[in-house]
Design a protein around this nucleic acid. Structure first.
Lengths: 229, 229
DNA sequence: CTATATCAGATCCTATACGATATTGTATTT
DNA sequence: AAATACAATATCGTATAGGATCTGATATAG
């Protein structure tokens, strides 16, 4: 490997991902996830730019992306604000939507399952249970929400339909759920349902995977619906 | 109504929608639709800004939105370019995706159908057939694609699930189809299928609406698949 | 003739400055 | 006392300028 190539590789690794916009996007995303920015509250561009330590332009681009993803709202000549807490109807619509896509994703994944893909998926599932170290409830649930997102995304990767995958990941389901439920714990049942999903994958049974996923999503919905009462 | 209120209303109507970013977004969108910007070709920000007559910042925000929607691609420190033409696999994935959502959308719409909603929908369908004036093939098909998008969106509005609706509208299905098919004519059959959909809505039959939509999407897919050969 | 190094042009990324608009608070009038 | 008119502040929207990086061409050495 030449020196120039090594240098280029270093740049690829060190500088490429740094693009300020990406960093700003992640920063805002995590602030929303951690509820540092409360749902519905204003997000002044210049304040954010000062806090993060960059100029306004990259903040603008990050907010534009977040707006398109539904995480923040924009009112012309008024400004940006964090998306308000979800209504029950939005929540039900989202789950009706997931129930149309995720069972089919599980079915496709079972069809395409390979030994290595199954091993990777089991590794992801195992990570969810062994969160290292005792932490406060909020952090623990935040970590769970991200791991769950990872698990579902991994299944959709195996399924192979990129339209379904990118759509569901773009919905930021788990972020919204976290904002709704951050103070509860409903993780144990979910882990068991994931296990029966894995069983279906191990058996290579598309129909069973589909049913297991449907049941998982439905039960998840029912668990969370209690938050509205 | 006070003078101040009248003035504010005027502003609402005249100035609010004008926000430069919106105009720029529409401009780029229509250029993509009209194939003035060929799939895969570069889109220099400053050139675009000069052509449209605005500064770079609004162009940047519009391109960020378009990137998130998959219509343009962005490479860090290289620039934006129009999304490349679709592969057959992407196309099939998209239709598998639509087949999961649109029949259910039609079913929900049939359930919620009201006389006024039906009348509006019939008006939209009628617009599709009476394109005024003789125009070239490309313009005619572009107009058809937009009208078809409008028709499907109207059904999803009636269905009432905003997650499904915004997701499908965000996929810009019809723009991609147009870019694929702009030089063919496959409109007549689609109009007939819309008609049988309307029949199901008139009868208030959710099951029939679901089946009609499934058939419409499947036939649409099969018609377009020929473009890959 | 091929490969490497250097240089120029183009483009993107970031920062700052200015003008336009909405919101908020105060004073005045009825 | 309540409502209206006015002014000040904060924020957004836009424009422009400068620094950093990539791409492509040219020249030189092997």
């Amino acid at each position: 490997m030449s020196l120039a190539t090594a240098k280029r590789d270093a740049r690829q690794v060190l500088l490429r991902p740094s693009s300020v916009v990406e960093a700003v996007y992640d920063s805002i995303y995590h602030r929303l996830m951690a509820l540092e920015i409360a749902p519905g509250s204003r997000i002044p561009i210049d304040v954010l730019a000062r806090e993060i330590g960059v100029s306004q332009t990259p903040v603008r681009e990050a907010l534009t992306r977040l707006e398109r993803e539904g995480l923040v709202r924009k009112e012309h000549l008024i400004g940006y604000s964090a998306a308000p807490q979800w209504t029950r109807k939005q929540f039900e619509d989202l789950y009706a939507f997931r129930l149309l896509l995720e069972p089919e994703g599980a079915r496709l994944a079972a069809q395409n399952m390979t030994p290595t893909a199954l091993r990777d998926l089991e590794a992801v599932a195992a990570d969810m249970e062994h969160g290292e170290g005792p932490v406060d409830r909020t952090t623990r649930y935040s970590r769970f929400a991200r791991a769950d997102a990872h698990f579902h995304d991994e299944i959709l990767k195996i399924a192979g339909n990129e339209v379904i995958r990118s759509t569901l990941s773009g919905q930021h389901v788990h972020l919204h759920i976290f904002r709704l439920m951050f103070n509860t714990r409903v993780t144990q049942e979910a882990l068991e349902e994931h296990e029966s999903l894995l069983d279906a994958f191990r058996a290579g049974d598309p129909r069973a995977a589909m049913d297991a996923m449907r049941e998982h999503v439905e039960r998840s919905r029912d668990r969370l619906l209690m938050a509205f009462e």
